[in-house]
Protein backbone atom coordinates (compact mmCIF):
# COMPACT_ATOMS: atom_id res chain seq x y z
CA UNK A 1 0.00 0.00 0.00
CA UNK A 2 2.83 2.36 0.78
CA UNK A 3 4.35 1.91 -2.67
CA UNK A 4 1.01 2.85 -4.12
CA UNK A 5 1.08 6.17 -2.38
CA UNK A 6 4.65 6.91 -3.42
CA UNK A 7 4.50 5.85 -7.05
CA UNK A 8 3.79 8.89 -9.22
CA UNK A 9 2.53 7.29 -12.42
CA UNK A 10 -0.25 4.70 -12.41
CA UNK A 11 0.02 1.89 -14.95
CA UNK A 12 -3.65 2.05 -15.76
CA UNK A 13 -6.06 4.90 -15.37
CA UNK A 14 -9.69 4.37 -16.31
CA UNK A 15 -12.21 7.14 -15.96
CA UNK A 16 -15.98 7.18 -16.37
CA UNK A 17 -15.98 4.12 -18.59
CA UNK A 18 -19.51 3.28 -19.71
CA UNK A 19 -21.08 0.77 -22.05
CA UNK A 20 -24.70 -0.12 -22.74
CA UNK A 21 -25.99 -3.03 -24.78
CA UNK A 22 -29.44 -2.37 -26.24
CA UNK A 23 -30.35 -0.17 -23.33
CA UNK A 24 -28.93 -2.42 -20.65
CA UNK A 25 -26.22 -0.53 -18.82
CA UNK A 26 -23.45 -3.15 -18.68
CA UNK A 27 -20.93 -0.79 -17.16
CA UNK A 28 -21.57 2.67 -15.78
CA UNK A 29 -18.99 5.29 -14.83
CA UNK A 30 -16.34 2.75 -14.03
CA UNK A 31 -13.21 4.30 -12.56
CA UNK A 32 -9.92 2.70 -11.67
CA UNK A 33 -6.38 3.78 -10.92
CA UNK A 34 -3.99 0.88 -10.84
CA UNK A 35 -0.38 1.13 -9.68
CA UNK A 36 2.24 -1.19 -11.13
CA UNK A 37 2.52 -4.65 -9.56
CA UNK A 38 -0.79 -4.62 -7.74
CA UNK A 39 -3.15 -7.54 -7.86
CA UNK A 40 -6.71 -6.33 -8.09
CA UNK A 41 -9.67 -8.67 -7.71
CA UNK A 42 -12.95 -7.83 -9.41
CA UNK A 43 -15.96 -9.69 -8.10
CA UNK A 44 -19.69 -9.38 -8.48
CA UNK A 45 -22.79 -11.42 -9.26
CA UNK A 46 -23.36 -12.79 -12.75
CA UNK A 47 -24.09 -10.02 -15.23
CA UNK A 48 -22.49 -7.37 -13.06
CA UNK A 49 -20.28 -6.15 -15.92
CA UNK A 50 -16.99 -7.85 -15.07
CA UNK A 51 -16.35 -9.42 -18.46
CA UNK A 52 -17.62 -6.25 -20.18
CA UNK A 53 -14.91 -4.41 -18.29
CA UNK A 54 -12.27 -6.77 -19.71
CA UNK A 55 -13.76 -6.51 -23.19
CA UNK A 56 -13.53 -2.72 -22.98
CA UNK A 57 -9.98 -2.75 -21.64
CA UNK A 58 -8.82 -5.08 -24.42
CA UNK A 59 -10.61 -3.35 -27.29
CA UNK A 60 -13.00 -6.22 -27.99
CA UNK A 61 -15.87 -3.74 -27.65
CA UNK A 62 -15.53 0.03 -27.73
CA UNK A 63 -16.93 2.17 -24.92
CA UNK A 64 -19.82 4.61 -25.21
CA UNK A 65 -18.02 7.01 -22.92
CA UNK A 66 -14.90 7.29 -20.83
CA UNK A 67 -11.16 7.08 -21.24
CA UNK A 68 -8.55 4.39 -20.75
CA UNK A 69 -4.97 5.51 -20.20
CA UNK A 70 -2.43 2.75 -20.13
CA UNK A 71 1.20 3.47 -19.42
CA UNK A 72 0.57 7.11 -20.25
CA UNK A 73 -0.97 6.24 -23.61
CA UNK A 74 -4.61 6.73 -24.55
CA UNK A 75 -5.86 3.33 -25.75
CA UNK A 76 -9.59 4.12 -25.70
CA UNK A 77 -11.19 2.44 -28.70
CA UNK A 78 -7.91 0.98 -29.99
CA UNK A 79 -8.02 -2.40 -31.74
CA UNK A 80 -7.40 -5.57 -29.71
CA UNK A 81 -4.09 -6.35 -31.43
CA UNK A 82 -2.79 -2.80 -30.83
CA UNK A 83 -3.73 -3.07 -27.16
CA UNK A 84 -1.92 -6.40 -26.88
CA UNK A 85 1.17 -4.79 -28.35
CA UNK A 86 0.80 -1.90 -25.92
CA UNK A 87 1.10 -4.45 -23.11
CA UNK A 88 -2.31 -5.68 -21.96
CA UNK A 89 -2.98 -9.41 -22.27
CA UNK A 90 -6.00 -11.39 -21.20
CA UNK A 91 -7.41 -14.85 -20.81
CA UNK A 92 -10.96 -15.77 -21.71
CA UNK A 93 -13.63 -17.08 -19.41
CA UNK A 94 -14.92 -19.33 -22.19
CA UNK A 95 -11.55 -20.60 -23.37
CA UNK A 96 -10.41 -19.38 -26.78
CA UNK A 97 -7.61 -21.54 -28.11
CA UNK A 98 -6.62 -22.31 -31.69
CA UNK A 99 -8.07 -25.73 -31.22
CA UNK A 100 -6.55 -27.72 -34.04
CA UNK A 101 -3.12 -26.17 -33.73
CA UNK A 102 -0.52 -27.76 -31.49
CA UNK A 103 -0.03 -26.44 -27.97
CA UNK A 104 3.40 -25.18 -29.02
CA UNK A 105 2.02 -23.36 -32.08
CA UNK A 106 -0.66 -21.74 -29.95
CA UNK A 107 2.05 -20.17 -27.84
CA UNK A 108 4.09 -19.26 -30.91
CA UNK A 109 1.19 -17.28 -32.40
CA UNK A 110 1.07 -15.17 -29.27
CA UNK A 111 4.86 -14.88 -29.03
CA UNK A 112 5.44 -13.81 -32.63
CA UNK A 113 3.39 -10.63 -32.18
CA UNK A 114 6.37 -9.16 -30.35
CA UNK A 115 8.78 -9.52 -33.26
CA UNK A 116 8.98 -8.09 -36.81
CA UNK A 117 8.16 -10.25 -39.82
CA UNK A 118 9.41 -9.86 -43.38
CA UNK A 119 7.77 -11.99 -46.04
CA UNK A 120 10.83 -12.08 -48.30
CA UNK A 121 13.03 -13.34 -45.49
CA UNK A 122 10.56 -16.10 -44.72
CA UNK A 123 10.20 -17.16 -48.36
CA UNK A 124 13.95 -17.16 -48.98
CA UNK A 125 14.58 -18.79 -45.58
CA UNK A 126 17.37 -16.30 -44.89
CA UNK A 127 19.65 -17.08 -41.93
CA UNK A 128 18.10 -14.28 -39.91
CA UNK A 129 14.63 -15.78 -40.38
CA UNK A 130 15.82 -19.27 -39.45
CA UNK A 131 17.52 -17.91 -36.33
CA UNK A 132 14.39 -15.96 -35.42
CA UNK A 133 12.18 -19.04 -35.76
CA UNK A 134 14.60 -21.05 -33.66
CA UNK A 135 14.60 -18.42 -30.92
CA UNK A 136 10.81 -18.34 -31.06
CA UNK A 137 10.66 -22.10 -30.61
CA UNK A 138 12.97 -21.96 -27.60
CA UNK A 139 11.04 -19.15 -25.95
CA UNK A 140 7.76 -20.98 -26.55
CA UNK A 141 9.16 -24.14 -24.97
CA UNK A 142 10.49 -22.18 -22.00
CA UNK A 143 7.05 -20.69 -21.44
CA UNK A 144 5.43 -24.10 -21.63
CA UNK A 145 7.97 -25.40 -19.14
CA UNK A 146 7.19 -22.55 -16.77
CA UNK A 147 3.52 -23.53 -16.78
CA UNK A 148 4.31 -27.24 -16.71
CA UNK A 149 2.77 -27.80 -20.13
CA UNK A 150 5.92 -29.02 -21.87
CA UNK A 151 4.88 -32.68 -22.18
CA UNK A 152 1.84 -31.61 -24.20
CA UNK A 153 3.70 -29.36 -26.68
CA UNK A 154 2.95 -31.46 -29.77
CA UNK A 155 -0.68 -32.22 -28.92
CA UNK A 156 -3.58 -30.36 -30.51
CA UNK A 157 -4.83 -27.74 -28.06
CA UNK A 158 -8.36 -29.11 -27.88
CA UNK A 159 -7.14 -32.51 -26.74
CA UNK A 160 -5.93 -31.05 -23.43
CA UNK A 161 -8.06 -31.50 -20.32
CA UNK A 162 -9.97 -28.41 -19.22
CA UNK A 163 -7.63 -27.33 -16.45
CA UNK A 164 -4.61 -27.49 -18.73
CA UNK A 165 -6.43 -25.51 -21.40
CA UNK A 166 -6.88 -22.75 -18.85
CA UNK A 167 -3.18 -22.88 -18.10
CA UNK A 168 -2.39 -22.72 -21.83
CA UNK A 169 -4.54 -19.58 -21.98
CA UNK A 170 -2.31 -18.06 -19.32
CA UNK A 171 0.81 -19.17 -21.20
CA UNK A 172 -0.46 -17.46 -24.35
CA UNK A 173 -1.29 -14.27 -22.48
CA UNK A 174 2.21 -14.24 -20.98
CA UNK A 175 3.73 -14.90 -24.41
CA UNK A 176 2.67 -11.44 -25.59
CA UNK A 177 4.99 -10.02 -22.92
CA UNK A 178 2.35 -7.99 -21.07
CA UNK A 179 2.70 -5.41 -18.33
CA UNK A 180 -0.91 -5.87 -17.33
CA UNK A 181 -2.52 -9.30 -17.23
CA UNK A 182 -6.30 -9.70 -17.13
CA UNK A 183 -7.46 -13.09 -15.90
CA UNK A 184 -11.14 -13.89 -16.48
CA UNK A 185 -12.23 -16.61 -14.05
CA UNK A 186 -9.09 -18.71 -14.33
CA UNK A 187 -10.25 -21.07 -11.56
CA UNK A 188 -13.67 -21.79 -13.06
CA UNK A 189 -14.41 -25.50 -12.99
CA UNK A 190 -11.38 -26.34 -10.87
CA UNK A 191 -11.46 -28.41 -7.70
CA UNK A 192 -10.05 -26.89 -4.47
CA UNK A 193 -6.60 -28.47 -4.98
CA UNK A 194 -6.32 -27.17 -8.54
CA UNK A 195 -7.61 -23.75 -7.49
CA UNK A 196 -5.00 -23.64 -4.76
CA UNK A 197 -2.22 -24.48 -7.20
CA UNK A 198 -3.51 -21.81 -9.55
CA UNK A 199 -3.54 -19.26 -6.77
CA UNK A 200 0.12 -19.91 -6.07
CA UNK A 201 0.92 -19.78 -9.76
CA UNK A 202 -0.71 -16.36 -10.14
CA UNK A 203 1.15 -14.99 -7.13
CA UNK A 204 4.40 -16.43 -8.46
CA UNK A 205 3.89 -14.94 -11.93
CA UNK A 206 3.21 -11.55 -10.46
CA UNK A 207 6.45 -11.66 -8.48
CA UNK A 208 8.70 -13.26 -11.08
CA UNK A 209 7.48 -11.35 -14.12
CA UNK A 210 6.74 -8.10 -12.26
CA UNK A 211 3.19 -8.14 -13.55
CA UNK A 212 0.17 -6.11 -12.66
CA UNK A 213 -2.89 -8.33 -12.57
CA UNK A 214 -6.63 -7.85 -12.59
CA UNK A 215 -8.42 -11.02 -11.61
CA UNK A 216 -12.09 -11.76 -12.16
CA UNK A 217 -13.04 -14.71 -10.05
CA UNK A 218 -16.04 -16.33 -8.40
CA UNK A 219 -13.92 -18.49 -6.17
CA UNK A 220 -13.72 -16.31 -3.06
CA UNK A 221 -10.92 -18.34 -1.50
CA UNK A 222 -8.73 -17.43 -4.47
CA UNK A 223 -9.73 -13.77 -4.51
CA UNK A 224 -9.42 -13.24 -0.79
CA UNK A 225 -6.24 -15.28 -0.69
CA UNK A 226 -4.09 -13.32 -3.11
CA UNK A 227 -5.63 -9.93 -3.94
CA UNK A 228 -4.47 -6.79 -2.18
CA UNK A 229 -7.45 -4.86 -3.33
CA UNK A 230 -10.92 -5.90 -4.38
CA UNK A 231 -13.57 -4.09 -6.38
CA UNK A 232 -17.16 -5.22 -6.29
CA UNK A 233 -19.41 -4.61 -9.29
CA UNK A 234 -23.17 -4.88 -9.35
CA UNK A 235 -25.43 -3.87 -12.23
CA UNK A 236 -22.45 -2.24 -13.92
CA UNK A 237 -21.47 -0.01 -11.02
CA UNK A 238 -18.74 -0.19 -8.44
CA UNK A 239 -20.52 -0.72 -5.15
CA UNK A 240 -17.47 -1.28 -2.97
CA UNK A 241 -13.72 -1.14 -3.12
CA UNK A 242 -11.04 -1.93 -0.57
CA UNK A 243 -9.00 -4.63 1.11
CA UNK A 244 -10.41 -8.17 1.09
CA UNK A 245 -11.26 -7.87 4.81
CA UNK A 246 -13.17 -4.64 4.34
CA UNK A 247 -15.07 -6.09 1.40
CA UNK A 248 -16.07 -9.18 3.33
CA UNK A 249 -17.84 -7.01 5.87
CA UNK A 250 -19.43 -4.50 3.55
CA UNK A 251 -23.22 -4.43 3.82
CA UNK A 252 -23.78 -3.41 0.21
CA UNK A 253 -21.69 -6.31 -1.01
CA UNK A 254 -23.60 -8.78 1.11
CA UNK A 255 -26.86 -7.35 -0.11
CA UNK A 256 -25.75 -7.67 -3.74
CA UNK A 257 -24.81 -11.29 -3.25
CA UNK A 258 -27.44 -12.48 -0.81
CA UNK A 259 -30.33 -10.08 -1.19
CA UNK A 260 -31.46 -7.76 1.59
CA UNK A 261 -29.62 -8.30 4.85
CA UNK A 262 -31.74 -7.61 7.92
CA UNK A 263 -29.50 -8.65 10.76
CA UNK A 264 -25.91 -7.64 11.43
CA UNK A 265 -23.60 -7.99 8.46
CA UNK A 266 -21.26 -10.31 10.36
CA UNK A 267 -23.95 -12.92 10.25
CA UNK A 268 -23.53 -13.81 6.64
CA UNK A 269 -20.25 -14.63 4.98
CA UNK A 270 -19.41 -13.70 1.45
Amino acid sequence: MSTEALSPAPLLHVSQLSKAFRGVQALHDYTLTLQPRTLLGVIGPNGAGKTTLFNLLTGVVSPDRGRILFNGQDITGASPDAIVRAGIARTFQNIRLFRRMSVLDNVKVALQSTQPFRLAEAVLRLPRFVAQEQALEERAKALLAMLELEPYAAMPADSLPYGLQRRLEIAMALATNPKLLLLDEPAAGMNPTEANALMHLIARLRDELKLTIILIEHNMRVVMGICERVQVLNYGEIIAEGTPEAIQNDTRVLRAYLGTVHSEPNHARA
Binding site: D81, A89, R90, L97, F98, M101, T176
Partner: peptide, 16 residues
Protein backbone atom coordinates in the same frame (compact mmCIF):
# COMPACT_ATOMS: atom_id res chain seq x y z
CA UNK B 1 -4.42 -20.51 -39.33
CA UNK B 2 -4.98 -18.82 -35.97
CA UNK B 3 -7.39 -16.37 -37.63
CA UNK B 4 -9.23 -19.29 -39.22
CA UNK B 5 -9.49 -21.10 -35.89
CA UNK B 6 -10.60 -18.11 -33.80
CA UNK B 7 -10.53 -14.57 -35.12
CA UNK B 8 -11.12 -12.76 -31.84
CA UNK B 9 -8.75 -15.11 -30.07
CA UNK B 10 -6.08 -14.28 -32.62
CA UNK B 11 -6.62 -10.53 -32.31
CA UNK B 12 -6.32 -10.75 -28.53
CA UNK B 13 -2.95 -12.48 -28.95
CA UNK B 14 -1.62 -9.64 -31.06
CA UNK B 15 -2.39 -10.95 -34.56
CA UNK B 16 -3.23 -8.17 -37.02
Amino acid sequence: IAVREDELGAACRGVR
